[in-house]
């Protein structure tokens, strides 16, 4: 934590905010990059980009939520 003094009334809010937004971030990451991968698969007639997109989306979404809430 950056500030020395903890303020319990905002700490609880930030913490709950972070935890409740994790599932929607991960779903959004999977939807965006998995969707791009799925479209690439359909276009190129392959089946590799969809799983890659899913994992990439999960990693990026985890990074996004970590940067936003985890400091």
């Amino acid at each position: 934590m950056s500030e020395q003094e903890r303020r319990p009334e905002t700490d609880g809010r930030d913490f709950a905010d972070a935890m409740w937004s994790v599932p929607s971030y991960l779903l959004a990451g999977m939807a965006v990059y998995g969707g791009i991968g799925w479209l690439l698969d359909r276009w190129l007639d392959m089946s590799a980009f969809f799983p890659i997109g899913i994992v990439l989306g999960l990693v990026l979404a985890g990074y996004a939520v970590y940067r936003r809430h985890g400091r």
């Binding site: 935890m19 994790v22 991960l26 779903l27 999977m30 994992v55 999960l58 985890g62 985890g70």
Partner: peptide, 13 residues
């Protein structure tokens, strides 16, 4: 937060 993100990712996979 980190552990929760990693675990939740498994459920969504």
């Amino acid at each position: 937060l980190l552990g929760f993100v990693l675990t939740e990712a498994l459920a969504l996979i």
